[in-house]
Amino acid sequence: MKKDSILYVVAFTFAVCAIFVLVLALANESTKDLVEANREFASQSAVLDALGIAWADRSQAATLYKEQVSPVEGSVPPAYRATVDGSGFIAVEHTGAGLWGAITVILAADPEATLIRGIQIVAQNETPGLGGRIEEAWFLGQFKGEKVPGQKIRVAVGAESKGSGDTDTENGLADGVPGASRTSQAFESIVNDALVRVKAIAGGGK
């Protein structure tokens, strides 16, 4: 058969496509469970981290999660109840708009939403090196054990932010990321919205 005849071209292209797609489908299928397990581990470890429960490895994280965390039935996006060091906490997953896309966090707080236990970021697409720095430990660490006066926290931006982290846990104030006011403000409203949800769930809502 001639190499440039239409029939050959079509048959060849079709055959190549078919083989590739088949191999890719197989590869995708065979790693599906692993990907699912990774996803589950990522979400469980984020919940544990937000609650301040220390874990050493994957299997320990899974057991700790099973022992201490119980998902709230029927709540979308997911919410969890947990008892840590003898007191009860509620953790909620919450998604809000950042500058570039959605920011999804897990926030753990006491049922009255007056004290933040911790925050973990599940997903964000902010500018690397600017807004993306909300994932850094100094920024998220500011919220650990932070009191929430009047149901709201505030993230300082502009000149008010020292840019190095606010160590006072009584004032309900955190330093924003320098140079990323919009992301910092978005983060503030995501945290406050999540706090409202914590309270709603404590009151028996979904």
Partner: peptide, 8 residues
């Protein structure tokens, strides 16, 4: 639910 970022 993707949150809405102002298209402008």
């Amino acid at each position: 639910m993707p949150p809405l970022i102002n298209p402008i």
